[in-house]
Structures are given as C-alpha cells and as structure tokens.
Design a protein around this nucleic acid. Sequence first.
DNA 1: GCAAGGTC
Length: 923
Amino acid sequence: MSRRGGGPVTVLNVAEKPSVAKSVAGILSRGTFRTREGRSRYNKIFEFDYAINGQPCRMLMTSVIGHLMELEFANRYRKWHSCDPADLYQAPVMKHVPEDKKDIKKTLEEEARKSDWLVLWLDCDREGENIAFEVVDVCRAVKHNLFIRRAHFSALIDRDIHEAVQNLRDPNQLFAEAVDARQEIDLRIGASFTRFQTMLLRDRFAIDSTGEERSRVISYGPCQFPTLGFIVERYWEIQAHEPEEFWTINCSHQSEEGLATFNWMRGHLFDYASAVILYEMCVEEPTATVMNVPHPRERFKYPPYPLNTIELEKRASRYFRLSSEHTMKVAEELYQAGFISYPRTETDSFSSRTDLCAMVEEQRRHPAWGSYAQRLLEPEGGLWRNPGNGGHDDKAHPPIHPTKFSSGESNWSRDHLNVYELVVRHYLACVSQPAKAAETTVEIDIAGERFSASGRAILAKNYLEVYRFESWGGSVIPVYEKGQQFIPTTLTLDSAVTRPPPLLCEADLLSCMDKAGIGTDATMHDHIKKLLDRGYATKDANTRFSPTNLGEALVMGYDDMGYELWKPNLRALMERDMNEVSVGRKTKAEVLETCLQQMKACFLDARVKKSKLLEAMTIFFERSNNTDESESQTAGEVIRRCNLCNESDMALRKNRDGNFMVGCMNYPQCRNAVWLPGPTLEASVTTDVCQTCGPGPVYKILFKFRQIGIPPGFDVNHLGCIGGCDDILKQLIDICGTGSRSQARRAPGTVPSNNIQGSNTRQGNFCIHCQQRGHASANCPSRATAFRNSRLTATNPRNDESTVSCNTCGTQCVLRTANTEANRGRQFFSCPTQGCSFFAWEDSINNSSGNATTGSNSGGSGRRGRGRGGRGGQSGGGRRNSGTSFVSATGEPVSGIRCFSCGDPSHFANVCPNRNNSNGNYY
DNA sequence: GCAAGGTC
C-alpha cells in the first residue's frame, strides 16, 4: 500500500448495492457515519473517518445498483432493418450507461473528483469484478490519477470487513474480461437469432388471435432456449411413452399383532408368463417361512442444508405453489424491510464465525415455533446441532436466514407470511438434530420367492417438529421370528402399466437449470418467466410446464436442422471458456474469436435451413395470409366424443403435409390425437356407426390409400374405424407409419406403436391389448376370450422340435428365450397373434417322458432346482414336465394351465368368473 | 423491438 504524506486522504468506496454500502460503513465507522443524499434516491453517501494501514482517511461510501453499464451495438446497427443480422457478429459494440443509471454515474463522478483513492467493494464474484471495472472507467474518466484498490470480503461481519480494508489488493482484470466475453457473446448470438427468427416467422404465421403479431418478439437467448428445451424434451418424452404392462406378486399377512405388507423382492416382471408361473408356484405352496429378521437398524433423516436462492425458490414452489419469480419478489421485499438476509445467494453453509444462537434467540417469542426455538437453546435438551455444509459458497453472502423477528406484519400478504415462515423454520431445522427411527425388515420365502416387509418406529422427530413441510412416516409391523411359518392372508398377482414421467414442475425445471449451469441463482426465475411472457410455455395450476405450439415449433425447427441450440451444451461450453479466461489459460480475444466464428457459421447455416423452421411452424400454425385455406384446416368432421378429455368432439383433419389425423377439438388444452396411416390419400367421415367401439357413436371413415404406399394384399379402399376394433388400420399403421411428427421423435430404443389410439395421447392406463380405456389389460375382455378359448395343450404335429402351432388360432408359434431372472435362457413358444396369449415352455413340450427331474432340463436356470421345503418331501422340481401338463409338488398330475381360484382348466384365474376382487387380483 | 447479468 503506497502512502501519501501529509493529512488525510479522501477515499471513495463503492459497493454493489446500497445495503452493502450501509453495512460496510456501519462496521468501519462503528455506527457513527453521517449520511448524505446522492443524485440517485437509492444510493446514499455515507461519510466517516478511518485509518487504512495507519493512513488517516476521510471515507466516502456509496454504491451502484448492480451493473452500471450495458453492452450495445454501435448506433447504425441498432435498428432491426439497418443491417443483415449476420453482420451482428462483427458489428462494433460498446458499453454505455443506460438512462436510468445516469444519476448514479453522476454521483460517482462528483465524488471521484474530490477523492484521492477509489476502493471497490463489489461482490467477490466475476460479475462483481466486472462491475468494479465499470466503476473504475467512470471514475477515472474524471480523475485520471485515482489510486485504485479492491476490498475482498466474504461476509458482512466485523472481522471480515476490517480485514478486507487493511488488505486491499488490485482488482482482477481476468475475472472482468471473462464477463466481458460472456456479455459480448450473449448479445451477438441473442440479437442475431432473435432478429432472424422474428422477421422470418412473425408475419408469416397467425401465431395468436389477438392481432399482436406486429409487436411480438420471437426471442432467442442462450439461457431461455435451453430452459425451453428442458420443457419440450420432457413433453416429447411423455408423448413417446408406450405403456408397458408389468406384473408383480403382492403378499400380506394379518395377525393379531397387526398387518404386514410384503413386497416381492424381484420388484416386477414384464413377462406375464414368467410372472404367472412364479405366482402359480407360490399359490401351490403358499406357506411363508421367515428367513431373516435383522435387529432394528437406527436410521436418520437429516435436516436440509442452509437455504440458498435456488432451494428457496424450489421449496416455495413445492410448499406454497409460488412461482420462482414471485418468491423472489416477496423475498426481496422481506429483505428490504430487514426481516431476512440477502435473498440472492448460492451459499448453503454458514461461516464458522456466524452467531447462530442469536438468530434462534429472537424467534423464542413466536407463538408457533417459539417454544421449539427455546428448546433448541437449552443444552440439556440436546436438540442443537451445528448446521450441515451444502458445499456451495459464493463468497459474498451467507445462506438466507431470518434477521429480524416478526409474528407477521400488517402489510404482509399470505405469501409474505409463508416465505418468512419458510426461512425461519428452515433455519431452525438446520440447527437441529436429525429425526431418528428404528427400522426393521422381515424377509420371507414362499416357494423359493423372496418377499420383504419393513416397519419404521420414529424414535425422535427432532427437526421435523419445526419443519412442518417434511414428514417421515412410521409404520408398525408384527414381530416375526426366524423360521416361523404362516399362510399369507392375501397373495395376489397384480398388474400395472408403466407411466410416462410427469411434466416438469417449477422445482424440476430449476434443478435442470442448476445442474446444466443455465443462468445464475439471481436470474433463473427470470428465464422461466421469459418463456411464459414470450408465449413459449404455459404453467398449469400444479406448476407444471408445457410448451406452447410456438415453443414446440421453435425447438422442433432447430432440432430438424440438426442443431442443439436448444440444449444446454452450448451454454456449458461457453461457461467453460469463461473459466479459462478468468484463470488466464485463454485470452478474452481468443475465446471471442473462436466462439463467434462458430456461432456465425451456425447462424448462416440455420438461415440456409430456414425451411425446417417454417415446416415446423406449419405443423402448428396457419399461414396468416391465406384465410380460405385456414378454414379448411380448422374445420373438420366429427368422428366421436373425445375419450380423453370427454369435453369436446374429435374431428377428422388433414395437416399441411397431407397427413390425416383425428384430433380433439379442444386442442391445445387436450392433445388427444389418432394419426391415420401415412399412405392415406383421402379420408371422409361416413354415417356408419361402428357396432363394436364406444362409448358413444364412433363414425367410420372411408379411406382411399395410395396404392404405391400400401403392401400387397391391402385394398386401396377401406371403410375403417379408429375406435380400436380395426385390425387393417392397425396393420397399415404398423407397416407404413403415420404422419405424426412425434413418431420420428420416439425415445431411442422404443418400438413404434401399433396402438391406434395414438402415441399422442397424454395419459397411460389403457389396455395394451384392445386399446380401450377403462380397464387394465389383465381385465381385458378380449384377452379373457383368448384365454378362455385357449386350448390347454400345444401340439407338435410335425414332431418338429422347433415348430409348434397355437391351437387357439393356428398360427405358428415363435420360439423365444426367457430373459427373466427366474428362467433366463429357458425357451418357450408363444403365439405372435395380437390378443392370443398361448404360451408353452419348450422343454415342457419336447420332454414328454414325464420323468424330468430337478433342474436337469436344458436351459433350466436352476430356479426349478431350488429346494422349496414343504410337502411330501419333494426337494425340488415341484412342477414336473409331463407333456404339456405338470405334476404338482405332491406328484399329482395337474393341467398345465388352470385357474387357481376355482380349479377350472378352461380359464386363467385372472379372468375367473368367481374371482371376488374387482381389481382382477386373484388368490 | 434482440441477450444475460447485476440490483432498486
């Protein structure tokens, strides 16, 4: 530190925000500063005397409000039509102080003129460093010989601040340059793509009905587009989901001591045949043997880490359904009024120097959580625990915590009360012991299958007592002893179908952004709001986001071009480059040159491929200059009542690509759609009502297919039904596909649907056999028929080991290899006909000697060789092969497939007319 | 009229 001789020097101190200026002034002057107005009503000037390294100083402390300057194109490039948007990659840019910051600039100039030193108290992050250089530029312009220093502090507490001012350093040019590069790249990319896509699309399409197209901006930004991308990607994932049926065995045991619910340790199987065989075996020998009763284990549920901005936003969304943007507005108001600490922080750990107890003490007066706060402070209660460390520290702000007691102010809304309560309870939870429980897991064996049940006894709720937003359920199970045997009260084979993931909620979206490094804690909510404001996405009452047509079309357009401009990778690469600049491994110029060169090439190429964007838009929007055509697009002939929303009719439509579909007229609220075969040339609704499908009338469609587009054997004319009964339509869709765009966007590895109800439906839970809603496939009437009709033996007329015909429908069966854990490698025949469930193990048919023994069959997995205890001393192979029949564990022959409910060999138990369980479960 | 980043 250079010193100046003579009297005191005048030091201009500048902080990033007024609150920090006031805090620093308060700490350095020990509360004795004088306040004077500046040009800006928010940015006061605080004056006090202080000695820096022995040098007496007259301190002037003021602030800016975040960035003082903005980056802007040179004048002649500012008007949208003034240049080719591609020119924006080289157009000169400059920093300028915007109108609303001019008064702050004036204050800085006036105070700098009378100062000898400039000390920068900006936040200690990259943006803060950049703002520091903005302040330097303004001040140096009026006082070129200013002595400039930077204060480094990590918290607004006495020791840090005094240390900072006694150890002033140089500002970090590299940090500032990294931000400069980021700003320039964001501006050039954002402006060029925004102008390009707005001018390309706005006037060509009727994007909204309000006639506001002329003022609509279709913006592109390196943060807003990846955020939109997350929403669209999840939406596509849901659309592409094919429900898949799976099976699981559930078991319960009711005793005098209570009920235990056992879960199958295999989880679930997707192979019905395997599941039913394992189930049969359990039902045949249902005695359960307790295998394992470990001692209760102590479990803990830990309180959350100290609260940072993203967690505050996520939790407020989850607990109170507040939008992240509104949460931040409310938090800002609470902060301004002094009730909570600074709400924009990444930090989720408290500095060891924080006085944690003081914050608890204040809260003892609160009627709701005061007594908990009191108990926290009593050492004998043992409730206190030092808070965890979440591993994030922005070196500028502590975690969000209460700073002033309140039991609710008169001007607070419900949202203020909620956010304050969340901050307080979260803080109290952080300094509390974890909840404690004792967990017991009982494992049983039924016919070689393992099941487990768990019980949890809560021993101490601890932090959960105050953190009412979280819970930890306790459940009691009876006491079991190893070796104990019992007969289960229920043993059911249950089916369910896989469901698509839900739409992203606000907390999910924030997590995606956080993980991918999109935006900062202070800006994430802005990006989300921007998507809503721009009309790219909508948010429903459950805070779940769907893309709008515009949002989906934009992402689809760029995706079709082959670009990942809507994915987070671009931002991640930029972020990596910024880091390289800030540590000096790359220069700002280097990064700007390579990045902008690549982005310009990408921009030019996107412009060449603009037809992709136009095509994507055409799928969703009418051309704004052709109203006649648009009428024919929106009108349509009614086919049926929508079986998804039940609110509107579904009508036959043709899109601009010439593809036909039957869609819900309540679109876009309901997106139920049935896409028709790709080769459909003409389609018209008839007055014929399908006699099979329902509910309500389903009118048949007269199709004319392109001869060249359909396989031999199909007629070009076809009177068809979209209700699910029409096998010809299903086959054509299977073979030729539809015009649906989502077909092309199926998740990798998924099989194209032969489900005529369409991959566009947004809810699962319809029967995968007959495509109707209202029942699971276990209860499907068509399936029941197939089972009932099923002959219970397979024949092998040619005595050919590899050929078996299904005796139900005569189709040649397919020899498959089991891939379930129980039967891996074992081969079986199954009928390929849709709806026919014929099934037979290969070794059951071909090994008809009747003397098959334990585990000796070819391909046997050993599953059948496992000792199962139980009746008659049979130590294995309870089911012996005898032609296509089986012998039971007691040696009695039983038919291969029979009902385990009533014993009737004509049907399976899940379709047994005597079953008494409306869910189709049976025992 | 474009971006994202500060903050009142």
